[in-house]
Write a protein that binds this DNA or RNA. Structure first.
Lengths: 212, 212
DNA sequence: TGAGTTAGATAGTGCCACTCTCCAAGGGAA
DNA sequence: TTCCCTTGGAGAGTGGCACTATCTAACTCA
């Protein structure tokens, strides 16, 4: 397939495809002549993944490139690649280290991990982007005076653990090669699913309680 | 307190505070003279909320204004205001209506709502932004060939329902006046909490399964 | 009295995700 | 063979956004 067809089938303009090629988000097609390249189904698939990461996952182009680069780094083992790709996902503002509220949020999070017995996360601690994201979010709740006790976070953590089991079950149905892309795609694409279901569930529950 | 103190206590530059005042995100202070205004604790609190919505909730300034405007529209009942504020929250790209994949995603979502017996959401259907967000996310999963059967979504929905019950329990501890801001703040600020916990739980579960 | 602060207005900045324009090189149809 | 369309490649331009800087006139306080 040539550029025009790739554009038509993906719904992405040729100009934007060229931009992604330049930025290294999409591998070059197979060069036929100096002015012609052939693209395959894998290019179409990759292009759709890139668009999903950027539009649904609201990810900056540079971040998407880093994620995909990490996912394909042949010099790393599969486990390492998977970790690197997930760690490169966007994770919001870094916690403000100078702030005492951040320090207390960190304690809160550490207590939570202790109670949950998430030993691996405890070992990783501050290194994991998701840990810092959590600290930052808890600190913000604190600053606004909204509750964030360990007990309350524990409910969310328990549900997150249930999700993780289901997600990993699903990931295990893929071959090791497919697995890395699957983890990235499922992590990113199930986030809006979960958030929209939460909002819908809140609408429903709110209606039951207040609107009758 | 004057502008300089508001700036210092919030950590937001005076230039940015002026910008927020202009954009209507922050109410004007009480005018003392032509060149001096007095700001109170409620300004500080509001400023912190605005920053949280924009930085943690990754919300555009214009969206934050709409959310806050809706939350404070005296012409509406409390229930309507709450609904309007939550509906103004960002919800990603709209589903591509021309696409057959979107149509099948919509069926999928409708089946889910039917099975869950979320009657209120069924009635609202396409009008609810969260519904369209879900359709769009499911369509994207479909396009990339990742699973999104009703059964699989149901697990997420069940957990979302549990969250909604806990969230609404919490909301009920607030007075009706505080409630609207509480719903907005808790909806937005618990999203990163949930997402980071999911990623941490996946890390932990992945370690248990593959790294031992 | 003069240095500093403030409200208010306007213009400018830096980043980002495209988007446009050109050029030289093919390639397909008349 | 000629003419027009498409392509790869590269660079410049665009529009939106969230600030940020500058300026002026009014006012305050030491």
């Amino acid at each position: 397939m040539r550029l025009a067809e790739l554009s038509e089938r993906s719904g992405v303009s040729t100009a934007t495809i060229k931009y992604y090629l330049r930025e290294g988000l999409l591998p070059q097609g197979e060069r036929i002549t100096a002015t012609k390249s052939e693209y395959g189904e894998e290019h179409l698939r990759r292009l759709r993944l890139v668009r999903a990461l950027i539009q649904v996952g609201r990810m900056p182009v540079a971040t998407a490139r880093q994620v995909l680069e990490a996912a394909e780094d042949e010099s790393l083992s599969e486990n390492t690649r998977m970790g690197a790709a997930v760690w490169a996902l966007p994770h919001g503002p870094e916690p403000d280290e100078g702030d005492p509220v951040t320090a207390s949020a960190r304690e809160q999070v550490d207590t939570l991990l202790e109670r949950l017995e998430w030993r691996h996360c405890q070992e990783l601690g501050d290194v994991a982007p998701a840990y810092r994201m959590l600290v930052s979010a808890v600190a913000t709740l604190d600053r606004l005076g909204y509750p964030h006790e360990t007990g309350h976070l524990q409910l969310h953590a328990r549900l997150a653990a249930e999700l993780a089991v289901a997600d990993l079950d699903l990931v295990e149905t893929y071959t090791p090669q497919e697995r890395i892309e699957a983890v990235v795609a499922l992590t990113v694409l199930y986030e809006p699913v979960l958030l929209s279901l939460r909002r819908l569930a809140e609408t429903e529950e709110s209606h039951r309680r207040f609107d009758d």
